[in-house]
């Protein structure tokens, strides 16, 4: 499978803190790549660098063969990099439908005049129903977004980003704060993205169950550095990873 995204020697400092230290790895299409590491390892920072919220100090972000290092975040989104957030970000004062339509707006890129004179497209409903079924939702789209539980909002954020027809998505801790049934649904959604839609998925998650279950490949970072990459089996027996997670003796 081909690489959809490649990071080359990416460095990022916040003052004296070296949050991304010479990061080099790639994400393939059609599979889930896990990104794990202890708290503060620089996982979310890396996501922000990929989606363009932060610009790296040096190094390159290469998306589908093009260097996108200096491209603004909204253009990256239009090129097909979707993402979700650790804490869901929605339009608090809009209803659920508008919140989801904003995802499909991105995939359509309709001009203003066209969008002014025409009704919303029909494929939106079809597509939405497909995802909503997987996400285990039965909700009235006219309700306020705030009427949803935290877990539902997190699932809905994945749905929103899938509606934008991305070529890869960055999913930031989808399982945090979800109950077991919702975690199952989140995994189902991510699997659909990777297997049926064939897009690349970068998944940050602390739940090892989820990571080991759906990731083909795992990248482990600590203190901004890649300390290991490999299949779930390789990672779970890697000495350095175990040390990073469990700590080591003081006399080592």
């Amino acid at each position: 499978m081909s690489d959809i995204l490649r990071l080359e020697h990416v460095n990022k400092h916040f003052g004296g803190l070296h949050v991304s230290n010479d990061l080099t790895f790639s994400i393939k299409t059609g599979q889930v790549t896990g990104l794990i590491g202890p708290n503060g390892a620089g996982k979310t920072t890396l996501m922000n660098i990929i989606s363009g919220i932060y610009i790296q100090d040096s190094g390159q972000v290469i998306f589908d063969g093009k260097d996108i290092s200096q491209i603004p975040p909204y253009t990256r989104a239009r090129m097909g990099i979707g993402r979700t957030f650790q804490a869901p970000r929605f339009l608090q004062r809009s209803n659920i439908r508008d919140n989801l339509l904003i995802g499909s707006d991105l995939s359509e890129q309709k001009s203003f005049t066209k969008s002014f004179f025409t009704r919303q497209n029909m494929t939106f409903e079809e597509e939405l129903n497909r995802y909503m079924k997987v996400a285990g939702f039965d909700i009235d789209l006219e309700n306020d977004i705030t009427s949803l539980t935290y877990g539902q909002q997190k699932l809905l954020e994945i749905v929103r980003s899938l509606l934008s027809h991305p070529r890869m998505i960055l999913v930031d801790e989808p399982a945090a704060g979800l109950n077991n049934a919702e975690i199952e649904n989140a995994m189902a959604l991510i699997n659909i993205a990777a297997k049926e839609n064939g897009i690349g998925v970068l998944l940050i998650e602390h739940s090892m169950d989820m990571i080991m279950n759906i990731c083909k490949e795992i990248v482990v970072i600590n203190f901004g550095k890649v300390i290991a990459t490999g299949t779930p089996e390789e990672i779970s027996s890697n000495e350095e990873v175990i040390t990073a997670y469990l700590g080591k003796d003081a006399d080592d």
Binding site: G52, I53, Y74, R83, F90, R93, D105, L106, S164
Partner: peptide, 17 residues
Amino acid sequence: RSLASVRDNDMAALTLG
């Protein structure tokens, strides 16, 4: 809708194109 996203959450707006 893009204006609404600017109002409510400009970070989300950016990542939604």
